[in-house]
Nucleic acid binder design. Structure first.
Lengths: 141, 141
DNA sequence: CGGGATCCAGCAGGATACTG
DNA sequence: CAGTATCCTGCTGGATCCCG
């Protein structure tokens, strides 16, 4: 699958190192690009949490998506799942060292957004105020 | 919208600084979490490109999604769109300084995946080989 | 060549109800 | 409490045709 993508790109004359980058970006998105994974990781970054606690902190997530997301993260070795044989059940989720290192890598992106979201909002407003700027075929100045 | 999310979280007793983080992660995903934006940015990071060139390098993207993605990026001030009044038309896209800085922030994540994708693949294989490991309600050892 | 407009399928994901 | 099972909807995004 990935190799066929690489072959396809190589055939188009795309430089090999660029092909690698493109595949990596694909992997990034496959792992943290969905709606809830990144959010769950950053919430867990502040400490271990039980299922219900996560369900409250990750605003808007359904039980279905939470358990699904957590299973995926556990599968990848990014979080641990610890079940205590109690009644009522008690299950704790926590980041593994691998998960923590990912969380730190994500921090860079989060900081970037924090530092530049004002700029983006301003650019967006400017763009929207120019009439017909949202169409690509516009007159050349 | 964002403020209502913050209010909702605050009402649940979530710490204010965590609320900020969650909102930021939301913004990250809204900006680069879709299927093509991040890919387009990283391809443009190696230099300005014309529409067709982008269409070839960003493997698998349709013309529709490419123009849509580019318009979004242009709107946010992350790329510039330069149209030359020629026949046939010639349009070049390039990263702005803001776009380049985002591309650098993304690099951290890309490097993380490059360094750890083997680990993740191994964890995944291990997980999958344990029978019934994919169900959460499993016996406690 | 560089798009826009339209149509349509697939699947992510929400709501709800049920279980150990 | 911590999930699973089922159903169902909305939106993303692909295919196709058209235009300047």
């Amino acid at each position: 699958m990935t190799s066929s993508l690489g072959a396809e790109l190589a055939q188009r004359g795309v430089a090999p190192n660029c092909v690698r980058t493109i595949e990596l970006v694909r992997d990034v998105l496959a792992r943290v690009g969905d709606k809830w994974t990144l959010l769950t990781i950053t919430v867990l970054a502040s400490g271990p949490l039980r299922f219900t606690a996560l369900h409250e902190q990750v605003a808007g997530i359904s039980q279905r998506m939470l358990s699904q997301t957590l299973r995926g993260l556990t599968r990848d070795g990014l979080v641990t799942r610890t079940a205590y044989p109690h009644v009522p059940p008690r299950v704790e989720y926590a980041l593994t060292p691998l998960g923590r290192s990912l969380s730190e890598a994500v921090d860079g992106l989060v900081c970037w957004v924090r530092d530049h979201q004002r700029d983006i909002a301003r650019n967006r407003d400017e763009f929207d105020q120019v009439p017909a700027a949202n169409t690509a075929t516009r007159p050349c100045p």
